[in-house]
Design a protein around this nucleic acid. Sequence first.
DNA 1: GAGTGGTCTAGACCACCTG
DNA 2: AGGTGGTCTAGACCACTCG
Lengths: 237, 237
Amino acid sequence: MQIPQYRQLYESLRHQIIAGIYQQDDLLPSENQLADLHQITRMTVRQALNELVKDGYIRKQKGKGSFVNLRRKTVGMLAFRDPQTGLVGNELLLQSKILGKPSIQSWDTPFFFPISEQEKQAGCIMAINLHSIDTSPLMLEYYYLPNINLPGFIMTPFVKESIMESLRISYHVEASGVEQEISATLATAQEAQFLQIPVGSPLVHVWRRYTTNRMGYYFYSSSFCYTKHYSLSSVIL
Amino acid sequence: MQIPQYRQLYESLRHQIIAGIYQQDDLLPSENQLADLHQITRMTVRQALNELVKDGYIRKQKGKGSFVNLRRKTVGMLAFRDPQTGLVGNELLLQSKILGKPSIQSWDTPFFFPISEQEKQAGCIMAINLHSIDTSPLMLEYYYLPNINLPGFIMTPFVKESIMESLRISYHVEASGVEQEISATLATAQEAQFLQIPVGSPLVHVWRRYTTNRMGYYFYSSSFCYTKHYSLSSVIL
DNA sequence: GAGTGGTCTAGACCACCTG
DNA sequence: AGGTGGTCTAGACCACTCG
């Protein structure tokens, strides 16, 4: 078996929800109906539906059924949101841009997160990403990648001007979880310059440590967010 | 059946993990062993273990087993953390205190979140909670509770000087999810006074909308966090 | 009363990991 | 080779919802 049956059903339903075939608060077929329809047992259907619940696509109610939920949880990532229009994340025209050339250097000591000996030996690829909406910068991100098994990273062109996308597409490294440390700071000269704001503006500072699909490989980021016009939103179940 | 068997096993294992009987990275008994031990089927054991995975108490690895994970995800809540010692949440001696008397008032207009007609009619219970570590204040929280089905709330003594605890113990209202909006601000005179910090200090400002186990009942909070010495941490899978 | 999701049983085969 | 977790089957009874 290549792809598990519950996964296929999950993807099928997920696709229909995203495509709008099932809409907000629509009632999905019952578990027994789905089981008959796909010629699988109800337990397998339940596994697919429970994954959809976990990922926020549907909600279940005993005695009634499974309903579509379009408000999805943002998995660890904070997404920008316009409090005026209510627009979130991808609905906004977010632009991403790599600043300068990524460089290989030694780790800052002390680094915010504890670094293993192997990571220290390997050195650190540092890259800077600036996210804007229209022409106004919102978030300045410093990425720190242990230089392990990423051949040619600093020479390879970036995908969609995004470090996360490049890791995913070019090296099949995907973030599977995030640990975040959040604080408030005042903009220094450098942050003020990149974000085109006055020195001393309040910024949300987020340190992140990403776990990945590559066992034992972590990477890190330090982000400065200007939240005067757009706040950071996250929905968690 | 009162309490499901998988829930009993979940609580039993969870208790043993918290109590330190199973420690970080310890190997739990295998699914088959747990099934034999508790005279239940493996599928029921798996449901218990999967809940533990979901709540971050253990991790599973195919071919090896289930391992204890003490780094738990903080469900929606941001927990304070001391970057020096690495202490998180309850390990720190966090003190909670209700400031003044809660009052029933009308909702601020406009309120940060959209308010339903029913919530507007009912009015709003406002209460202020201050969280400190030792004697230094860390977080100032304004709670906004729709005055629906909370008889005697403003007269009832609080449980552990905490609004969330009081809702849970006295009214069986429990938060099941959170939507957060995060921004950075500068401390006003009022925040500076409560938090005993200079006016103009950078603060993390968090607006929250809680979903609860009571269908259709939401409550809200607005928190100001002083992050100079302790950052806000959250781990999300 | 009929249908729904929640819980549970007693098996089975598989891919993965370790000795 | 033997044990582990991942997937799956074909049933069952229950509490809840609604007409």
